[in-house]
Nucleic acid binder design. Structure first.
Lengths: 248, 248
DNA sequence: TTATTGCTTTGATTCAGATCAAGCGGGAAA
DNA sequence: TTTCCCGCTTGATCTGAATCAAAGCAATAA
């Protein structure tokens, strides 16, 4: 694991390409060496719980590879996903030690962790990191609000199209390809996880995915590999104005 | 307007009571005088739009009196509220100039604004403010995630009970009363606004409010004044574990 | 090779909430 | 006073998604 690949998020500058993996030249490197000292890696198997709601979380972390979800659960078992962590995303909450939702690895997962206390101290010393973290949190809040529109007002078909568009765009960004032309990606979620994301049942998810396929918006190879035949059409189906919201 | 009543949020410390209005002794006062220099007040009438989605927002602000909402709208007019701003809440996004949703005054509204540029500069000088802002943003994100569970998985009755519980609790905090015993408050939202908050239609809101009244969970005086007969019962109806989530 | 298991699809039926449609009640204007 | 208007309630009906129930399919184990 090269040093360049690790503290991606903490060190990217505002005007650098969103998912680049190299450390930006404009960031000073003091923080980098501090981070090096307090970081460690943890890996989880698919399905393993990283941390339970209410537990103490004595680290903050960023996802290196794999996918994790944040979910909330009601006593009777109803579940709602409230966050989806893809590579380079950040989890954890400097300044609060308990976490309010379950964090689960949905695929094999490698996280780069930083012990919370020294991380917080470092944050106090170097405001740059705190500012970057504020920016990231505000982006996350914007994404959450977009998601609220989806949950509250979109139809099942629109929800599915929206989710596919989000994953397609993030996947494209990760691969450093542009968002034009036919896109292709592997769904990182089961039907049930998609349902938890969208506030639907897994049967409805299955039906609507089939419907989008039948209507030629997407094609499938196997259950998981998706080909987006026309991204603009997909966005239209998603009911999104403009281009589907924020840069993700 | 006394100086003490203004930059409430920016200056409260982590362990001070949540909604206190005096400036905490542990905060240094340099920032206060800076803020004094760059602040101004704006008032809006009920129904007036503070700012449209996509517009430039050259200030950040905190609500002094009245209520504002953040809403997202689809082209066909479907609306979802994504934020509810009560007195002492903060709006605005240091580091980004356009806003991604409509901000509307639902009652007469007084806001204490700070010009964005000098505010950002002040933030860079005094990390304390940035840290406080990060903390507030993380709280807002937690609230948004609670809201996502509501939108995705709760029944209409649970949604209404949840909203009433949220308003009752915030109102009690504002009045500095404790949350025990019969609570009483004026609904600050119309049925339609409640519907936009909850992802329902106004007819369903009306029916479920009537149902909670019929079942003795709440009483009404007129359309707007609500008496919560038993707060614990209300929380139970809301389907919330523990006490309904986060401190608001 | 045949089970087993976990995910997925598809079909039949039900139901919570949306939609359509009156009607109510209180406050402001005439 | 009457009229109008706006926010709210209530009723009748419809419908999209949930629920209940069977199979299908692919990968792994036996």
């Amino acid at each position: 694991m090269s040093l360049h690949e690790v503290p991606i998020l903490l060190h990217r500058c505002g005007d650098c390409p969103i998912r680049h993996r190299a450390v930006c030249a404009r960031c000073d490197t003091d923080e980098l060496s501090t981070l090096e000292q307090i970081k460690y890696y943890r890996s989880y198997q698919a399905g393993q719980t990283v941390i339970w709601s209410g537990d103490k979380m004595d680290f903050v972390a960023s996802v290196v590879t794999g996918i994790a979800t944040l979910t909330q659960t009601m006593e009777d078992g109803r579940r709602q996903m409230v966050g989806l962590l893809l590579p380079s995303d950040f989890v954890g909450r400097p300044g609060r030690q308990t976490v309010a939702y379950d964090v689960t690895a949905t695929t094999d997962l490698l996280m780069c962790c930083f012990r919370r206390k020294p991380f917080e101290e470092m944050m106090h010393r170097t405001p740059h990191v705190g500012q970057r973290l504020l920016e990231m949190t505000l982006d996350e809040l914007d994404a959450a609000r977009e998601w609220m529109l989806l949950l509250g007002r979109k139809t099942a078909r629109e929800k599915i199209a929206s989710l596919l568009a989000i994953i397609a765009r993030r996947d494209a960004a990760l691969k450093l390809r542009d968002s034009k032309g036919p896109m292709t990606f592997d769904l990182p979620l089961t039907r049930e996880e998609m349902a938890d994301y969208l506030g639907l049942t897994l049967e409805t998810v299955s039906r609507q995915v089939s419907a989008l396929k039948r209507d030629g918006v997407i094609s499938l190879e196997g259950k998981r590999h998706v080909i987006v035949n026309d991204f603009a059409r997909l966005l239209e189906e998603a009911g999104d104005d403009s281009d589907g919201g924020l840069p993700v």
